[in-house]
């Protein structure tokens, strides 16, 4: 995955996130969207991979990381229980990264420790948020993007 496509993946996740959890939307719509996004991310990873997917183990969970990022973005537009779902979505991302890294470590790849540590840190930190203002939302999104692109 080239850095440019990697950054584009982040934007794609952001774009997709805006469709989730619209007011009054049915669980069917959200479920279908989630499945559809996952499919979209899979296809994106498959064709965007600079090498074939088969030879680069670190791409194995790439679509799932994108989905987790998408969920993180989508929580900022929630009406209620925002902090709870924000923390849960970040925990999911952390989870995907951590266990993906463990699986890859056993097969001889290096773990992205900084990314996991940063995510764990922000997950823990965001439990202390009392009220998520627009500025705070923006900060969080920038942080996630930074984690995605740079770590």
């Amino acid at each position: 995955m080239t850095p440019l496509l990697n950054a584009f993946a982040c934007l794609l996740a952001l774009g997709c996130a805006s469709f989730l959890w619209r007011k009054g939307s049915s669980p069917y719509r959200n479920g279908a969207l989630l499945a559809g996004f996952l499919l979209l991310f899979s296809v994106f990873t498959y064709f965007g991979a600079s090498d074939t997917v088969v030879t680069d183990p670190s791409l194995e969970h790439y679509p799932f990381r994108m989905l987790a990022l998408c969920l993180c973005f989508s929580t900022t537009s929630l009406g209620i229980y925002r902090r709870r779902y924000l923390v849960l979505a970040q925990a999911l991302w952390c989870w995907v990264e951590l266990f993906g890294a463990i699986a890859l470590y056993y097969r001889g790849c290096d773990a992205a420790c900084v990314r996991i540590a940063a995510l764990a840190g922000i997950t823990f930190g965001s439990t202390f948020l009392s009220q998520i203002s627009r500025e705070m939302e923006f900060c969080l999104m920038v942080f996630w993007m930074a984690v995605w692109v740079f770590f």
């Binding site: 183990p57 194995e60 969970h61 679509p63 799932f64 995907v96 993906g100 699986a103 890859l104 097969r107």
Partner: peptide
């Protein structure tokens, strides 16, 4: 499964 070298079990996404 995911930590092994069995080709069919490759998958860092296996947890999800």
């Amino acid at each position: 499964f995911a930590t092994t070298f069995v080709p069919e079990w490759r998958g860092a996404f296996f947890p999800v």
